[in-house]
Amino acid sequence: MSAEVQTILRKADAVCFDVDSTVIQEEGIDELAKFCNKGSEVSSLTAKAMTGSMTFQESLKLRLGIIQPTLTQIRDFVTTKPPTLTPGVKKLVGLLQSRNVPVYLISGGFKSIIAPIAAQLNIPNDHIFANRLKFYYTGEHAGFDDSEPTSKSGGKAVVVDSLKKRHNYKNLVLIGDGATDLEASPPADAFIGYGGNVIRPTVQAKAKWFVTDFNEIIDVLNQ
């Protein structure tokens, strides 16, 4: 079964990555919660969202309701707690870009936190699909933009589907660690489960190809 995924990967015309626990080692919203001293309350909700036992939008609303991050806190967090890129991801993204394969980031996290990560990987801002935090003019937390597809369960599939239609991609590959990634294939033509930071048993069991090191993907691309 992994051979089928690897064949599509070698002729990929677009590759989409999940961000939290895939491109970066952390779960962004959990780290933001810790930064705002709300860590333990939020991490259990993240686990429920990842295993699919709660809808994503329920979980997001609850978690943000607990954290209530201000604009200043978000700016301080991005500056003082930059996320850690997963080993090998920069090399993999660079290899794809050198072959003119467009790379996208699709995340249930927040664009304001993901933008600096994308910049490190030379991924353009308009290739980020993520949630948008809202703030009052005072800088206080005002929720999130619920019109973004990524704020809902099944949102990653909506983004993938629209990318395929807009650019006529025929071999779009999605790489991620969570249930929200797994459920987006199809419409993704192939899904690679990633477990280098955290192994989610449902994803490991259902992914046709499951890797724990980005070098495994690089090796297949270089064959």
Rank of each mutant, 00 (worst) to 15 (best):
A3G: 08
E4G: 02
Q6F: 01
Q6I: 05
T7N: 14
T7R: 15
I8L: 10
R10Y: 06
A12G: 06
V15I: 11
C16Y: 02
D18R: 09
D18E: 09
V19R: 00
V19W: 03
V19K: 00
V23N: 06
V23P: 08
I24L: 06
E26T: 12
E26H: 05
G28K: 09
G28W: 00
I29F: 03
E31C: 03
E31F: 00
A33H: 00
K34P: 06
F35N: 10
C36W: 00
C36I: 05
N37C: 14
N37F: 14
G39K: 04
S40M: 12
L45V: 15
A47W: 02
T55A: 14
Q57C: 08
S59R: 04
K61H: 13
L62N: 06
L62W: 00
R63M: 11
L64K: 12
G65N: 09
L71D: 12
L71T: 06
I74V: 15
I74F: 08
R75M: 10
F77D: 03
V78S: 11
T79M: 13
T79Y: 12
P82L: 05
L85M: 06
P87H: 08
V89E: 03
K91Q: 15
K91G: 05
K91S: 14
L95W: 07
L96Y: 04
L96D: 01
S98Q: 10
R99T: 07
N100C: 11
P102L: 11
Y104D: 09
L105E: 02
L105R: 03
I106V: 15
I106E: 00
G108I: 07
K111Y: 14
S112D: 15
I113Y: 03
A118W: 01
A118T: 04
A118V: 12
Q120L: 13
L121D: 05
L121F: 07
N122Q: 10
N122T: 11
I123P: 04
F129S: 05
A130V: 12
A130D: 06
N131H: 11
R132I: 15
L133M: 12
F135K: 09
Y136S: 13
Y137M: 13
Y137C: 11
T138G: 06
G139L: 12
G139I: 10
E140S: 13
D146Y: 13
P149F: 09
S151H: 09
K152C: 12
G155L: 13
G155D: 08
K156T: 11
K156D: 09
V160N: 04
V160P: 09
D161C: 12
L163C: 09
K164D: 06
K164T: 06
K164P: 01
K165G: 07
H167T: 03
L172T: 04
V173R: 00
I175E: 01
T180D: 06
E183A: 15
A184V: 04
P187R: 10
F191T: 04
I192P: 00
G193N: 04
G196C: 07
V198K: 10
R200S: 01
R200I: 00
W209S: 01
W209C: 01
F210N: 03
F214W: 09
F214Q: 02
N215F: 11
N215R: 06
E216I: 07
I217H: 01
V220S: 08
V220R: 02
N222E: 15
Q223S: 15
Q223N: 14
